[in-house]
C-alpha cells in the first residue's frame, strides 16, 4: 500500500501523460476486462440476493414460516444469511483487489510515463 502512495506522489512531478496510449495498452485493457467482469458479476449477484428477501417475505410466506431449529424459521435464517453474504462479497472483492487488481494497476502506474 505504501508503495502506491509514494508512486502516485512521484508522478506529480513528471510531465504529460499519454492517457489514450495507456488506455490502449494491453496491460490496462487486461485490468479493465478483469475488473469489469468481476465487479458486474458481484454487483448483480448481491442485488438479486438482496431483493430475494422482500420478495420472499411478501410472496413466499409459507416457506419463510417453516421452523427449522426450535422457533428459528427459514425467514430468520435467510435474513441472517443476507449479512453473511454481504460480508462475504466484501471479503471476496477485497481479497481479489488486494492480490490482483492492485498489482496490475501498480505495474501500469510504474510504467505509465513510458507508454506513448
Amino acid at each position: 500500500m505504501g508503495g502506491v502512495r509514494s508512486i502516485s506522489r512521484g508522478f506529480k512531478m513528471s510531465g504529460q501523460m499519454n492517457w489514450a496510449a495507456i488506455d490502449a495498452d494491453p496491460r490496462f485493457q487486461a485490468l479493465h476486462a478483469k475488473k469489469t467482469h468481476f465487479l458486474w458479476g458481484l454487483m448483480i449477484f448481491s442485488v438479486v440476493y438482496y431483493f430475494l428477501l422482500p420478495i420472499g417475505a411478501a410472496y413466499f410466506q409459507e416457506l419463510f414460516k417453516v421452523q427449522v431449529w426450535g422457533p428459528v424459521n427459514v425467514g430468520i435464517l435467510f435474513a441472517l444469511s443476507e449479512f453473511l453474504v454481504a460480508w462475504t462479497i466484501a471479503g471476496v472483492y477485497a481479497k481479489r483487489a488486494n492480490r490482483e487488481f492492485d498489482t496490475m494497476a501498480q505495474e501500469i502506474a510504474n510504467d505509465a510515463h513510458n507508454i506513448r
Binding site: 502506491v4 502516485s8 492517457w19 495507456i22 488506455d23 479493465h32 501500469i108
Partner: peptide, 12 residues
C-alpha cells in the same frame, strides 16, 4: 481516457 485510466490506477 484520462479519467478512466486515473480512476483505475490511482496515477496523479
Amino acid at each position: 481516457d484520462e479519467l478512466y485510466v486515473r480512476q483505475n490506477t490511482g496515477i496523479h
